[in-house]
Write a protein that binds this DNA or RNA. Structure first.
Lengths: 340, 340
DNA sequence: CTGAAAGCGCTTACAG
DNA sequence: CTGAAAGCGCTTACAG
């Protein structure tokens, strides 16, 4: 492949001049600029990123750390958003796979050995010890779904609390008073704020707080199914249930139907994420939509801002959500009966 | 960050020696090796990949080109497989986003400017002109789902034909004779071989070939729904239908139910891919499973083989598939009626 | 406005 | 078994 030397020869200038043309130095005369541009074109020249990175510390590489790499379907949308915004930025994306059981491994070393300019870190635990060195080193970073801030680090996450609140409001409007909540772990901002949204909702509408209506575990479908089955055996089962993922909602529906009840006639169910699953499920899920693609795109925009401008304030961004009403929620039947 | 110079100073040797220790040159004495290893440990040293790549042309970077970046849910599984195998290989993965409408862009230049050692290319059109330069340059490459071979390029794909054949056999065993086929485009190996599998199946079991039972378009759900709706208005609608994605199967089911029929009682439906959707759909889908995770892992293994050993024969690998029987297929009712 | 030179952090013949 | 030196392809003060 052609190098800067070839271009210089062809254009009859020094390599320093070629470099300046490539990097848009203003000093270069129009004539020279044109000559060099022509040579670049003819030779199909593209600068070697490694060399550039080595000397200028500008690798044009953005690193991504994922906790459960690729296992979560929602990651796809996020990456699509990132990639969209990435396209004409001149940056490429490198996946840094963590090696959790390797003592010699550190996220910071990995980042540095690749000369990565900035980091997008997705769905990681807030108290991971590895994160401290990253923050101390002031690597430009945007966290998605983990509330971490630093001099050059910020985060972006959906307004989960409001999503759940919207769900409670919706059920309440349909006449439900016994509303259950099946959620994931509470050890991160996403889990915590969803739980807060539930509590706020109950309080706002004067609904009873019944601790046996609350189950938390992982975001797994089977677990939600078991949890729901358990609640259906209570003296007074809930008439509505809010789940914090669409998969969990599907699990809840399975349990409800297995008990001989129907959704939404007997029990209303709300999901979270508005994934494909929500459309696919029968009945189709009423669910909370977070614009993952946009979150991904914004994360990257902010990251590039932080990288390129030392005075750029890192984001602390809570993205709006909306409730998508489909077929898994309906008027509370208990209400209709008592009303009749 | 510590450089090789720091390590050399600390260990009291030359940088050449440090380099040799890092790269496992056999000439180094045990004593020196230990001293250097200790210094590396103490300084938390990790070689700068850009510098290494620059001089040795070994960037330890594997590039990935995706056609519809991240929009396809099946990509997730594939990447999970790749990442799994990648983990302790010393390579990282860089996403190279194609810039289709940029004249100055070429996949080859992009690859070279990143010093990428090898390429995984997923779901790309076979006759993309960009591919020729890549092949001529003999960049080690493994294509997934595109049948392309070269001196240092091979491919890996699931045995789609057999998947469809298994579907036809299954329906035939259940007494179906009027079997429809809704598929994607035929302009690539995946589309073609699935269609072949369908034809082989009909022939093998002496089933009628009815051209109005065959629809192809994209892999979209809505399109499959429309196609199915059309077939249901035929004089003699099919009693079984095979779709080449789970999403299309869901679309077909929607059309069947919209027409007042039921799945599987009136019409049996088979999907393809065994995604989450298959479990989620009601009824749960009978579908063809391809082990995407394994395909991803194998693709990477082969690629590393090609990179590291010039005499490694590039793969031409057809991976096995299996039929997962769930609730969307049942005995043909027409048969039962005539049999009764 | 342009170019010579130093240097980024490595690897690899080569000499000893 | 070890090290001095050249060089990979760039960028960036600095001099002119």
């Amino acid at each position: 492949m052609a190098s800067i030397v070839d271009v210089a020869k062809r254009a009859g200038v020094s390599i320093a001049t070629v470099s300046k043309v490539i990097n848009n130095y203003p000093s270069i005369s129009r004539k020279t600029r044109l000559k060099v541009a022509a040579a670049i074109e003819e030779l199909n020249y593209l600068p070697n990123m490694a060399a550039r990175g080595l000397v200028a510390k500008r690798s044009r590489l953005i690193g991504v750390f994922l906790s459960n790499l690729f296992t979560n379907p929602f990651i796809t949308e996020l990456l699509a958003g990132i990639e969209e915004r990435l396209r004409h930025s001149g940056y490429d994306l490198v996946f840094l796979s963590m090696k959790p059981n390797d003592h010699h491994y550190s996220m910071l070393s990995h980042t540095r050995s690749r000369d990565v300019e900035g980091l997008i870190i997705i769905g990681i635990e807030r108290d991971l010890p590895e994160l401290q060195p990253l923050l101390r080193a002031e690597i430009p970073s945007v966290y998605i779904d983990t509330d971490i801030v630093g001099k050059r680090a910020g985060y972006i996450t959906a307004d989960s609390a409001r999503g759940i609140l919207l769900g409670v409001a919706h059920l309440q409007r349909l006449g439900h008073r016994r509303i259950a909540f099946i959620t994931g772990e509470l050890n991160n901002i996403v889990g915590r704020s969803r739980f807060e949204g539930y509590q706020q909702g109950l309080r706002a509408f004067g609904l009873p707080y019944i601790s046996s209506y609350i189950v938390y575990g992982n975001y797994d479908r089977a677990e939600a199914e078991a949890a729901m089955a358990g609640m259906l055996e209570l003296q007074e089962p809930p008439t509505g249930v809010i789940c914090t993922s669409d998969l969990m909602a599907v699990g809840a529906i399975a349990a409800i139907e297995a008990s001989g009840r129907r959704v939404p006639d007997d029990v209303s169910v709300i999901g979270f994420d508005n994934t494909h699953v929500a459309e696919m499920s029968r009945p189709r899920l009423t669910t909370v939509n977070q614009n993952l693609r946009q979150i991904g795109a914004k994360a990257l925009s902010h990251l590039i801002g932080i990288i390129q401008d030392p005075s750029y304030a890192p984001p602390v961004a809570i993205e709006p959500v909306e409730l998508i009403v489909r077929d898994s929620t309906a008027r509370c039947r208990a209400l209709e009966q008592s009303g009749a």
